[in-house]
Amino acid sequence: MIHFDNVTKVYRNQNRPALQHVNVSIEKGEFLFLVGPSGSGKSTFLRLILKEERPTQGRVHVAGKDLSRLSNWRVPHLRRRIGCVFQDFRLLPNKNVFENVAFALEVIGKPRRFIAKVVPEVIDLVGLEGKAHRMPHELSGGEQQRVAIARAFVNRPMILLADEPTGNIDPATSIGIMKVLDRINRTGTTVVMATHDAAIVDAFRKRVVELEGGRVVRDQSRGVYGQAY
């Protein structure tokens, strides 16, 4: 599903590469934790999958496509097959829950009837039954993140990228968020989650890829956050 083939990324005006010779293969339906300290290259890893950045060296394949050969006007089609969740939720404050989720479908030109059918299903899936007409500021952090997940998933993407989705949320609520991501993973969606949260990684026992200084220092199935001694 996602293949990094000897990828190096050096940002302009920076000497130290953000990623160095990274080789990672993620299969369809996998759940992968991307761990490592700040500045270790986790976000760059995710941005490369979205083709928000180009690798300086090496190739990135997503869904069988070589991104370096993907022309710019095809990039929106790539992104329709990838959902994204962020630490800061990125909801539209002047739209309610339903409208926020529907926005993702409206802007890719889906018909209104389709939106009316699909959006409530996804709102239920993330556990926000009966809150479709709340505004974002009326919701807790955890609930806002559920809205963001619903928006990322409403178009049934093959891949869900989550960049520290529990970073702004207390540990108890985080478990709820993780359950939603796990439910999404069980539908066959590949989930890549960058995180600092050791407790969550240890509890879930999924594949762990650890980055340090832009290098993969560990790739372990059923891993934990810290090095297992």
Partner: peptide, 17 residues
């Protein structure tokens, strides 16, 4: 920019944005 950022992210075409 918030709206257009989300539009880019969910794969709205350039024309639509």
């Amino acid at each position: 920019r918030r709206e257009t950022g989300i539009m880019r992210l969910v794969g709205a075409s350039n024309l639509y944005i």
